[in-house]
Amino acid sequence: MTDSLTDPRTVHRSAEFPAQTQHQPGKTEPMNPTPDHGEETYRGSGRLDGRRALITGGDSGIGRAVAIAFAREGADVAIVHQDEEQDDADVTLDQVRAAGRTGVSLAGDLRDEAFATSIVEKTREALGGLDTLVLNAGYQHDVAGFESLDTEKMRRVFDTNLAGMLFTARAAYPTLEPGSSIIVTASIQAYNPSPGLIDYAMTKAAQVAFVKALAEEAGPRGIRVNAVAPGPIWTPLIPATGWGEERVRTFGQDAPLGRAGQPAELAGAYVYLASDEATYTSGAVLPVTGGKAL
């Protein structure tokens, strides 16, 4: 094989994962192996110079990878996270600031309408504006059987993945300027739902509808609305979902590329959608799934 080519089957861990479990919300430090967020590999080239971004769920996983990439591309970044995720958030902000950009921490619960709304104005005050909104925060839990679907957990899924997303987007939308971008973290679950994630999959399908509907409305204002649909990605959410040892051990092995993805492998998709390279891309769902079809 040519030395300049990277084999996508083996560029990241292709072996099975060790048994592990966490309580929600999951944390990065206990994970084995540690996810790759692009700390050592992502190289920016000024594609987002001067942008001001708000990333929900920006403390770890996909959100951390996006925050690192955005900062290295020239954007200032505010990240939203729960109070108990402050340690992870601090690590992310260290990476943002090491890139020479402003990093802001906003701690709270997006299910709280007042908080989910207030973060927009707090971001504008801290960064001098807001033009890139990444709606990434999410919650999922294992459902052993439909008859056992827990009402409290179901409402947490709906309120985090849908209500919180809508509260923040609604607050930001009126004053976004032409050239602004809204990016939602959807999922392959929107198209290929697993019974054990039935409520989560429902919210991801609704997010796709949100993206397509808002893109229609926002287009005449020069605002683009898109989504990234990850496949199986190794983030703290996985050991905290409540799956058994076998499910965690084989996570992502059924993808055509034979492995789970790493958060770093999604960052470029968000950079593209936020950048001027995507000025004619709106209402799109960009799959990063290891070959799994939407």
Results as ranks from 00 to 15, higher is better:
residue 108 G to I: 12
residue 48 L to F: 00
residue 186 A to Y: 09
residue 179 G to W: 06
residue 222 G to I: 11
residue 169 A to L: 14
residue 53 A to F: 01
residue 195 P to Y: 04
residue 182 I to K: 03
residue 139 Y to I: 05
residue 81 H to V: 10
residue 199 D to F: 09
residue 251 F to H: 06
residue 93 L to M: 12
residue 257 L to S: 09
residue 127 L to T: 05
residue 200 Y to K: 02
residue 64 R to T: 08
residue 110 L to D: 06
residue 198 I to N: 14
residue 95 Q to A: 15
residue 163 A to D: 14
residue 95 Q to I: 01
residue 34 T to R: 12
residue 88 D to P: 05
residue 70 F to G: 00
residue 81 H to W: 06
residue 235 T to D: 04
residue 60 S to H: 03
residue 15 A to I: 07
residue 214 L to Y: 02
residue 151 T to I: 14
residue 121 E to D: 15
residue 272 Y to A: 10
residue 235 T to M: 04
residue 80 V to M: 07
residue 48 L to H: 00
residue 134 V to F: 11
residue 27 K to R: 14
residue 214 L to V: 07
residue 78 A to V: 02
residue 241 T to R: 12
residue 224 R to D: 15
residue 105 S to M: 13
residue 259 R to I: 02
residue 210 F to I: 12
residue 206 A to V: 12
residue 268 G to D: 13
residue 26 G to S: 10
residue 13 R to W: 02
residue 17 F to T: 00
residue 109 D to N: 15
residue 137 A to S: 14
residue 204 K to S: 03
residue 60 S to C: 07
residue 13 R to Q: 10
residue 8 P to H: 08
residue 219 G to K: 12
residue 143 V to D: 11
residue 212 K to T: 12
residue 273 L to R: 07
residue 67 A to F: 09
residue 13 R to K: 10
residue 219 G to D: 08
residue 181 S to Q: 05
residue 159 D to I: 06
residue 274 A to H: 00
residue 232 P to F: 09
residue 25 P to Y: 06
residue 134 V to H: 02
residue 241 T to G: 01
residue 291 G to I: 15
residue 61 G to I: 03
residue 114 A to M: 07
residue 115 F to K: 04
residue 138 G to S: 15
residue 29 E to H: 07
residue 119 I to W: 07
residue 216 E to W: 07
residue 174 P to I: 11
residue 143 V to Y: 05
residue 211 V to N: 05
residue 232 P to N: 13
residue 203 T to G: 03
residue 223 I to M: 10
residue 35 P to E: 04
residue 99 A to Q: 00
residue 44 G to H: 03
residue 133 L to Y: 01
residue 160 T to I: 13
residue 254 D to H: 10
residue 89 A to F: 07
residue 203 T to W: 03
residue 152 E to R: 08
residue 147 E to H: 12
residue 132 T to W: 00
residue 155 R to I: 11
residue 73 E to R: 01
residue 293 A to H: 13
residue 215 A to C: 01
residue 231 G to W: 03
residue 254 D to G: 05
residue 214 L to M: 12
residue 276 D to K: 08
residue 53 A to N: 00
residue 212 K to E: 11
residue 273 L to V: 09
residue 116 A to N: 12
residue 69 A to N: 05
residue 60 S to A: 15
residue 179 G to F: 07
residue 26 G to K: 06
residue 108 G to H: 08
residue 163 A to H: 13
residue 274 A to Q: 00
residue 238 I to L: 05
residue 87 D to S: 13
residue 27 K to I: 03
residue 127 L to D: 03
residue 21 T to E: 14
residue 70 F to N: 00
residue 224 R to F: 14
residue 11 V to S: 10
residue 117 T to G: 04
residue 256 P to V: 05
residue 271 V to N: 01
residue 229 A to E: 15
residue 203 T to V: 07
residue 228 V to N: 09
residue 276 D to G: 12
residue 28 T to R: 11
residue 145 G to K: 13
residue 151 T to G: 10
residue 59 D to E: 15
